[in-house]
Amino acid sequence: MNKKVIALSLVIGSLLAVGCTLYKPNTVTTDNAYVHSDVTAISPEVGGQVSQLFVEDNQWVSKGEALFSIDDEDFIANQDIAKSALDVAKAALRANQTKTEMQLVKIEQAKQTIHSASANAKHQAAEFKRLSRLVQKQSVSRNQYEAQKTRSIEANSKLETAKLALAAEQKQFDALLTEKQQLTAQRKQAEANLRLVNIALERTVVRAPFDGFVADRQVQVGKFVQPGMGLIVMVPDYVWVEANFKETQLENVSQGQDVEVVLDMFPDQPLNGRVTSITPATGAQFSLLPPQNATGNFVKVVQRVPVRIELDIPAGLKQRIYPGLSAEVSIETARQG
Rank of each mutant, 00 (worst) to 15 (best):
W60R: 08
A91K: 10
A215F: 07
A77M: 08
A85H: 12
I76T: 04
E56R: 12
T113E: 06
K318C: 07
Q172Y: 01
A315T: 15
A117I: 00
G273V: 07
D312K: 07
R94E: 12
Q59E: 15
Q59L: 09
R207F: 13
Q181E: 13
I309W: 07
Q49E: 14
A208F: 07
A125V: 05
I107E: 11
F245D: 06
S51I: 14
A334T: 11
Q109P: 02
I6R: 06
S157T: 14
L177F: 11
T279E: 04
A82P: 00
T29K: 11
V275C: 10
V46P: 07
N198I: 08
G13V: 05
D72M: 00
Y34G: 02
M265E: 04
Q79V: 08
E202F: 05
D38K: 10
D38V: 11
N156D: 13
I70V: 10
I321Q: 00
P227F: 07
A284W: 10
F173G: 03
Q255L: 13
I42Q: 08
S14L: 15
L250V: 02
T276K: 10
V219Y: 00
G296A: 12
A85K: 15
T248H: 06
Q186N: 11
V5K: 14
V46D: 04
D258W: 03
W60L: 13
A95Y: 09
K137P: 03
K300H: 13
T279N: 05
L325D: 06
K163W: 04
V235Y: 00
E179W: 02
L8N: 02
P25F: 02
R274V: 13
I199N: 14
Q255T: 13
S326A: 12
A155I: 00
P323G: 05
V18Q: 03
R320C: 00
K129T: 07
D31G: 03
Q79T: 12
K171P: 02
P291C: 10
D258L: 09
S157E: 07
E310N: 09
R207C: 11
N244F: 05
E242L: 06
G48E: 08
N78D: 13
Q103A: 15
D38S: 13
N272T: 02
F128T: 06
